[in-house]
């Protein structure tokens, strides 16, 4: 099965989702991220969904789970690049993704993580 590449940048992990997500890939990503956070001692995770044209409840649940997982593993997760149409749809669907940090793009996401790391 195709797995999504996870890049390590400094003390952060970056996943940029560029393909149409299958459910098995979503589950694999969740597992891989938990492994890599522990393996690398990363303090932050940036998940870039700029290219995703939809986020349904399954993918939404993965994002929430990764955020919760990373918090337990002492890392912060930021979801970046959500498209307006996707955000509007998620709200209508009833998913507000409480507790997940968000940013407009990868750069802002990384800045948010480094600021947050210093503050907390």
């Amino acid at each position: 099965m195709e797995r999504l590449p996870i890049l390590k940048i400094g003390s952060m992990l970056l996943v940029s989702i560029q393909v149409d997500l299958r459910d098995d890939m979503v589950i694999a990503l969740q597992e891989d991220l938990a492994d890599r956070i522990v393996e690398t001692g990363a303090r932050g995770v940036v998940i870039d969904i700029t290219a995703l044209d939809i986020v349904d409840s399954f993918t939404g649940r993965m994002l929430a789970t990764v955020a919760a997982l990373s918090r337990i593993l002492d890392a912060e997760t930021v979801v970046v690049g959500m498209r307006p149409a996707v955000a509007i749809t998620l709200v209508e669907l009833g998913l507000s993704l409480d507790g997940i940090k968000t940013a407009l793009n990868v750069e802002r996401g990384m800045r948010l993580l480094s600021l947050g790391g210093a503050a907390t």
Partner: peptide, 12 residues
């Protein structure tokens, strides 16, 4: 209200 929640999802 929905717009405000959607904006937050986008990071604004």
């Amino acid at each position: 209200l929905k717009t405000i929640v959607a904006a937050r999802l986008m990071g604004a």
